[in-house]
Simulated assay, not measured.
Amino acid sequence: MENYIVKMLSANQSESFFQLIHTNRERLEDFFAGTVACTKTLSDTIDYCREIEQKIKERVYFPYVIIEKSSQEIIGFIDIKNIDWNIPKAELGAFIDSKYEGKGIITNTMSSLIDTIVNEHHFKKLLCRISSRNVRSINVALNSGFELEGTIRCDYKTTKGEIVDLNYYGKVF
């Protein structure tokens, strides 16, 4: 973790965020469809990041970026979404640039970010919804202390129109 910084995404990072999405667009489009759709151009990404800043203020969405210290480039993304303050609980999603896959960066940053957001926001439960075929993301969830709660069949439609099963992983605090 000493080579990486995790911080909230801000509008002044729009260009680097756009590059991360653009470089990984094809592999992200099915399960980060909303983010990919809102970041087709740099101009779209700037607008999207401005909208996100408002969502952060409203406490309905918390997007974090993973920055490589040496290059100051954004290499990954972890977002806290579908927040229900009545419980309180939230869903986490994450991805990393394909060049950095398999190095444990997401697992390490996710674990430290979970500690931070649970302390800061007092979440009682966090969950991850992951395609039952996405072995890498499943391993990140398991290695971050999440437990399989079940598989919901035919729960998500990809941008290609395929309806897939999602595994639900939860972590209670």
Rank of each mutant, 00 (worst) to 15 (best):
G150H: 06
E51M: 12
Q54K: 14
K81L: 06
E147Y: 05
E68K: 09
D79V: 05
G150F: 03
E149P: 01
H22R: 13
F17L: 08
M8Q: 15
K69E: 07
D115V: 02
D47A: 12
E101K: 09
R133M: 07
S144V: 02
I67F: 04
S137R: 04
I67T: 09
C128G: 14
I52F: 02
D84L: 10
K125H: 05
R133E: 12
N119G: 15
I74V: 09
L92T: 11
S111P: 00
K171F: 01
K69W: 00
A37E: 05
R133N: 13
I117M: 13
I106R: 10
I75L: 11
K99F: 02
I163E: 12
C154V: 03
Y4E: 06
A37V: 00
I5E: 13
M110P: 03
Y100N: 02
A37Q: 06
E51A: 14
R59F: 00
M1C: 06
I106L: 14
V140H: 03
Y4A: 10
M110W: 02
K103A: 07
G161W: 00
K157A: 10
R153F: 03
T116R: 15
R133L: 08
C38V: 01
K57H: 05
T41H: 12
N139M: 11
T109F: 04
K81I: 02
C128A: 15
L9C: 03
K157E: 11
T23V: 09
M110H: 09
V118D: 13
K125D: 05
I130Q: 04
G34I: 00
A141W: 02
Y169C: 05
I78S: 12
I130R: 05
N3Q: 12
R59V: 01
E53R: 02
N134W: 00
T39S: 15
V65F: 06
K160M: 07
K171G: 09
F32P: 06
F31W: 09
N119Q: 13
G104S: 10
N108H: 09
A11M: 04
V164Q: 04
G93W: 03
